[in-house]
Design a protein around this nucleic acid. Sequence first.
DNA 1: TTCATTGACAAAAACGTTTTTGATAACCTA
DNA 2: TAGGTTATCAAAAACGTTTTTGTCAATGAA
Lengths: 341, 341
Amino acid sequence: MSIVLLARDLGLSISTVSRALNGYHDVAPATKQRVLKRAREIGYRPNPGARRLKSGRSSLVGVILPAASDGVRFVDSVASSLLGGVEVELENGGYGLIATMQTRNDLEREAALYGNFIKGGWVDALLLVRTRVADPRVELVRKAHIPFVTYGRTETAEPYAWVDTDNEKAFYLVTLRQIEFGHERIALLNGPLEYNFVRLREKGYTRALAKHRIAPDRLLMLNGDLSEVSGYALCRSLLVSAVPPTAIVCATDAMAIGAIAACRERGMAVGHEISIAGYGNSSASGFCDPPLTTIDHAVFENGRHIGQSLLRLLRAEAKPADIHYLEPVVLVPRKSDCPRK
Amino acid sequence: MSIVLLARDLGLSISTVSRALNGYHDVAPATKQRVLKRAREIGYRPNPGARRLKSGRSSLVGVILPAASDGVRFVDSVASSLLGGVEVELENGGYGLIATMQTRNDLEREAALYGNFIKGGWVDALLLVRTRVADPRVELVRKAHIPFVTYGRTETAEPYAWVDTDNEKAFYLVTLRQIEFGHERIALLNGPLEYNFVRLREKGYTRALAKHRIAPDRLLMLNGDLSEVSGYALCRSLLVSAVPPTAIVCATDAMAIGAIAACRERGMAVGHEISIAGYGNSSASGFCDPPLTTIDHAVFENGRHIGQSLLRLLRAEAKPADIHYLEPVVLVPRKSDCPRK
DNA sequence: TTCATTGACAAAAACGTTTTTGATAACCTA
DNA sequence: TAGGTTATCAAAAACGTTTTTGTCAATGAA
């Protein structure tokens, strides 16, 4: 019973107070100011449940953070910066951002979780992260008729709003660099194939190879999770193979660090005898031995683009089909990769 | 208009349906089953806004994730595991977990954010993370009369529910190990002093020194943020000092990795000429060179304890004063620390 | 002067639940 | 058989907003 108290305090009707607070034009400027001032003094906050119930709007954008599974921890990698960027933009537009966790990642649970989140009516729009090649979530959300933007693309017939990092370019660049170093047997330590960014990185890799007429070797394209452990194990298996690669490009800095450890274990000098590169420009990448050649991209800026896109969608200023942003990447050359011996 | 549709479909009154759904005992077992079955078929979900509005309960626990500032990124360090554990337990109890981001970390903004979050009535309870020595948030939340548990302790007069890692023990152990290795000049690379865990780590460090009658040297106790960059810079300054330390214990693995890089730069063999240890058992810690001696602790389990504590508070099964859990730590010996030369 | 228009406010209905209070019939007990 | 329980369901009043529809006076045009 809060707006009624405020109204009583002001000697006005509830409706006038409500309309003053929500910026309608059929309230006198003087009274409007009076209401606003008193509301601030009292510390009045409209009950979001009631507001949502009546108007159907919650002024909240939701995101479901994927489970920490398979070493692929979204929260731990870019979430902080990305969501920070999203939040900053949404705040400007009068929206908030709420997140919930996805502890299990089987499809059934996922569908239920998204169903609850949407039908529950907590949020006006949704951000989908960690997109998969075939991602049932986008159909699910589209059917719910709720605006959404994805971070990362997916394979679907209908147009949708997306913001993505140029994964393909990144791996085109880093692979090309190895080729220019004289390498021909270049391995790719990649992530789970279900993720779209994994496919794109593979695509960039093969495109670079194709440009120089190097036949891609399936035995050099390995998939693990994105962790150090996985990078270590995969690199180890490569090094003991009949014809080991002379260069290795990795899907994450973590994998690269694992790979470096595997090389070191076998007495191979990374950056001299073998060439290794990572992705992400993690804070650790500049401090490992040797410092890691990697790919940098502006995660925070990406978040801001996502936030802006969500606002445009919510304000119906744009259609999903019009919202596409591909974030550029830049190669950070350091000491872990080197010319072929 | 959803429960009325369900009621109409079943030929029952709204109230009976509601009471059946909420497990009241004045509804015949047969009808109860009928209602439950049909509700599942229809895919009925009570509007959380309406429920909250009427009953005053949202069945949601909230957490505000601190901003990524000063290299101290909570989200990036333990959030994923911790919140996963919280979520799993809450789910069992019929509660959900929602998070929102704190993009700025000035006190005024913080107070406003927490005020909004609580008064907004989105959540039934709160989780406070990254506690500071003097933390205005606990008073703020207490005054709002909403149950809460903190991850990490703080200095306050009133009793409150907390779950914490045994930071003091951790640094007691790791420092003791250096002493037993024969070191006397042991440096502490710590985080910002405003955080409570930083104080506790310092306490553990000095306690270990005191036990062996080593006078703590203020010049060896340095504070930075918790990043690699900071570890690198602080270690560098130590190495050029008049009497450099022979061992360095660091507040995070990241700092230790930075410190290792600084030593390497000066041609010092870490694990032979100088002893370094970290904290956290991060995934990278086992793969750097040399592998890092560090402290492991069960973050996920900690999250589960937090979840359970929140449920007990929400069900009024316990008072805040009765809820304290100190998570044990275990030292993981690896190769980065060594006997004094 | 008279009638339509506008400006500023108020009344009241509705959103989808939960919960309090009632109602009816069936069942006991004496 | 009469009176009181009990079991099962229904009616209706909230919860705090937003929004539609009115009201009434002041203003303007004819």
